[in-house]
Design a protein around this nucleic acid. Structure first.
Ligand SMILES: [Zn+2]
Ligand SMILES: [Zn+2]
Ligand SMILES: [Zn+2]
Ligand SMILES: [Zn+2]
Lengths: 134, 134
DNA sequence: GGCGATTTTGACAATCGTTCTCACTTTGAG
DNA sequence: CTCAAAGTGAGAACGATTGTCAAAATCGCC
């Protein structure tokens, strides 16, 4: 069987998945690895990367890049959505915008592009951080 | 007067800027460096990075990250816009969507976020590549 | 429960884009 | 011209990610 890449379930993969479920913000592989170790979960860094990779492929985890190119991961709902992220504390809100979806498809179509996808993230300072820092 | 961070004009910076003007697609620093060298323009890699960095800060060059985290650069118009990029050949079209801009700001505001920015890129297969590959 | 084929793991090395270092060169004001 | 300030570049350093490969875990089967 081809297609679906079902991996054998292991303690390590479960640990990564569980930690992601518990985290509400986008988190880097290195940070996840460090947290798992701290909490007494022995796991190799390469294994964390592999687990994240397969979860991203499976669509159960979203990944995006910070400004300095580091990949950060988050367990999200599986339907299509985007993110509103606090630049300061990392607080993340899932948002949807049907109008944006159709706009992107229409614009791409007008220029003769097919097989269209897009990336869209919104960054700002959340209310909590705004009061704190000022 | 100082104020703005104007850099001293040099042959190398001009070469990077000129090459970017000539390129219609997003290009990596390494590629730009290689092209400059090929065309007989002696220049160091670090200098290419520095030139790109200051142009990005000055707002005369746009930068985005490829899926594998590499930064790619392009000389774009200076007003706010987004990009429609061919996944196959790299052809890039600048696009604008006032509706998207206001949507992003509104959504962020509804969640109490301030100082809002966003990133938005559209990817697809351009007409030329669609016919070629099939 | 035990067995062997197959997959996963993990310590470590390797890769790769990017930044840093620092001696040398270029620039530009006086 | 002269000199201080700014820019350059070869190579070292860096940090995130991926590759390696022997040891360990898993699964289907007896
Ligand atoms: Zn915040
Ligand atoms: Zn969308
Ligand atoms: Zn194309
Ligand atoms: Zn915009």
């Amino acid at each position: 069987m081809s297609g679906s890449s079902t991996r054998r379930p292991t303690r390590q993969q479960a640990a990564v998945a569980a930690l992601l479920e518990r985290s509400s913000d986008f988190t880097s592989a290195q940070t996840l690895h460090a947290r798992l170790r701290e909490s007494g979960d022995p796991i190799g860094l390469a294994t964390v990367y592999r687990a994240l990779q397969s979860m991203v492929e499976a669509g159960t985890v979203d990944v995006l890049r910070t400004d300095d190119g580091e990949a950060v991961y988050r367990a999200c709902s599986t339907h299509h959505h985007h993110h509103l992220v606090c630049r300061s504390c990392g607080r993340t809100v899932e948002v949807e915008g049907p109008a944006v979806e159709s706009w992107a498809d229409r614009v791409a179509g007008e220029h003769g592009f097919s097989d269209v996808t897009h990336t869209l993230e919104i960054f700002g300072t959340c209310a909590a951080c705004a009061t704190t820092s000022t």
